[in-house]
Write a protein that binds this DNA or RNA. Structure first.
Lengths: 348, 348
DNA sequence: CTGAAAGCGCTAACAA
DNA sequence: TTGTTAGCGCTTTCAG
């Protein structure tokens, strides 16, 4: 049998209420009895039931985290930021994985409601208007990270400005003399991020009037393998495209692309420059070290958690000041991009 | 206010007990009323409270997962296996991160007890005899994965045979003609795995009578950075050591080591062969592709979960058949190891 | 097949 | 400062 607050009370010769008080408001209890109770707790090895407490106070100090998958390499970085921030605020995190399938997002929200999390941190498939009825009635604050919402319900979101980020990536390449630049996009179902990154690429192509045009694009799913195959497809058209550089929608895809290039006898960056996106930990260990757009994952996670905490403590703030909050990205210059002089090939 | 089982009951014109029945034992309920109740649930958007249910039935269908950290790249693979198996058995997973610090493992167990998880899957710091009192009184089944226990309390563990695994790695190198082999070990506080891998290396050195002897070892913490610095230290002694190959205690360390070697002007595998350990997803994308000892993470996670489920359903089985279960490892041959002919350098 | 009622472990008025 | 009591939402006998 489980040791309850009543057992402790009996053992310490006080009432259950007093035991509860030393748990929650110890300052309200006489130091002597407080110590007595604490000793009893230790002796009986008492562990308060989170469920019973949650049932009683209607809050769980838990943040529900909805993720699209956990095998992505960026997951670790994001999660680290979330977990740290959560525990800094005395919150636990309960995770649900939608496995990249839109029909699981309803399950995810159901799950979170059944567990009565205080707030939901959503990082999965892009929410659209179909989510509005759900978002209206849910009664739990929802904050987005790494994604944004197309629904009408106003929601706070924390992410980088995807369009600008890949625009900047392409601009970086242009500055280094590249004029024929390919793009390895990400394009999952219900994925606004992929869409925006693609738009950023298109904007750059037009802005800089790139000779390679808008057709040198292949899409994947952000994973290494798809980086490989997308690069492969680009290479099939290389005699026509004559790319000197490619920008990828993720570091994973960049890694796959480099693998593909190496397999085809291209050296990176000598024969082809490659830019990543994310700045994963491994980026600086790869050969060549990856030049990439750094995304502040930890910061994004932390900010989203903080917003959530704020919303759960002051539920009235809800609708005010909602919207997308862009966190700064920046380019980390390493070795996978080679400058080309005056549009001429500068190879030795 | 939350919609409760009473609200549904009222709406459907039945008693709460009946609603509870359609939730848990629908076959006991008249099809007509069953449907009526289901409709009410939908209309009211009812979500049963997991806490209330758990409180009442004394089980949460939740597996507590205790991990040493989440930034390790192997974490993703392990977690994927665990989550899949858990959801296959209708279990949720609640994670706690000890962040590689032994004093957090007590917190971890406390956490799990407060949340009344049905079973605990432990993958953190090696448990020793200090854990016995805890393990005795805990009253929740505990199963280990990727680690084992030095405590007296018998516990099931799922992992590879670490000694044999690195022995095999070294043997692989020897077969390819290497006789001067270094080791990049892992050695965290309370880390039996690191100890065993080191022993495996030592056994191989003796078994094969390697000329390089037992001194060509440096220790790190399994992370990339430590692979880099450990390799660096080995290289400082290279004129004396004259290593032709190194075996690393993790793919991450191997990656760091390769980075270091490249920075020092060594080519891999031409000037130095490198073997990893883990077979992470990235292993096959790196340049050179990493030859490594594959550890069946998903299988390990799945087996551990299954054992846990078994233990929670049949608590009596407890002490029988406990112990370490070795899952098979195997060597994945790729490009980071170069054969040497007859102990002679076969470089062109 | 269905309902009434007690209880899971904790908290929060309200009294004392 | 402490105790009494009434729930929080669900399940589960036990009757009917």
């Amino acid at each position: 049998m489980r040791v309850t607050i009543r057992d402790v009370a009996k053992h310490a010769g006080v009432s259950p209420a007093t035991v509860s008080r030393v748990l929650n408001r110890p300052e309200l209890v006489d130091p002597a009895t407080r110590e007595k109770v604490r000793r009893s707790m230790d002796e009986l090895d008492f562990q308060p039931s989170a469920a019973a407490r949650g049932l009683s106070v209607r809050r769980t100090d838990t943040i529900g985290l909805i993720v699209p998958g956990i095998t992505n390499l960026f997951f670790n970085e994001l999660y680290a930021g979330i977990e740290q921030a959560a525990s800094r605020h005395g919150r636990k995190v309960l995770m649900f994985n939608t496995e990249n399938s839109a029909h699981r997002v309803l399950d995810a929200f159901s799950f979170m409601r059944q567990h009565e999390v205080d707030g939901i941190l959503y990082t999965s498939e892009t929410l659209d208007e179909n989510a509005d009825p759900l978002l209206q009635r849910i009664g739990i604050p929802v904050v987005l990270a790494l994604t944004e919402s197309l629904a009408k319900t106003p929601l706070s979101a924390y992410k980088v400005d995807e369009r600008r980020a890949v625009f900047d990536a392409v601009a970086y390449l242009v500055t280094r003399g590249h004029r024929r630049i390919g793009f390895l996009g990400g394009q999952m179902p219900h994925d606004i991020t992929g869409q925006q990154r693609y738009e950023g690429f298109l904007q750059a192509v037009r802005h800089f009037g790139l000779e390679s045009g808008e057709a040198c694009v292949e899409f994947g799913d952000y994973r290494m393998e798809s980086g490989y195959t997308s690069m492969q497809r680009l290479l099939e058209r290389q005699s026509e495209l004559r790319l000197t550089a490619v920008a990828a929608a993720s570091d994973e895809m960049a890694l796959g692309a480099i693998r593909c290039l190496n397999d085809r006898g291209f050296r990176v960056p000598d024969d082809m420059s490659v830019m990543g996106f994310d700045n994963l930990q491994i980026a600086s260990m790869l050969t060549p070290r990856l030049t990439t757009v750094a995304q502040p994952f930890r910061e994004i996670g932390a900010r989203a958690v903080e917003r959530l905490v704020e919303l759960t403590e002051h539920p009235h703030l809800s609708s005010a000041e909602h919207g997308v909050h862009y966190l700064p990205h920046h380019i980390v210059e390493r070795e996978s991009v080679r400058p080309i002089l005056d549009g001429l090939d500068s190879r030795p």
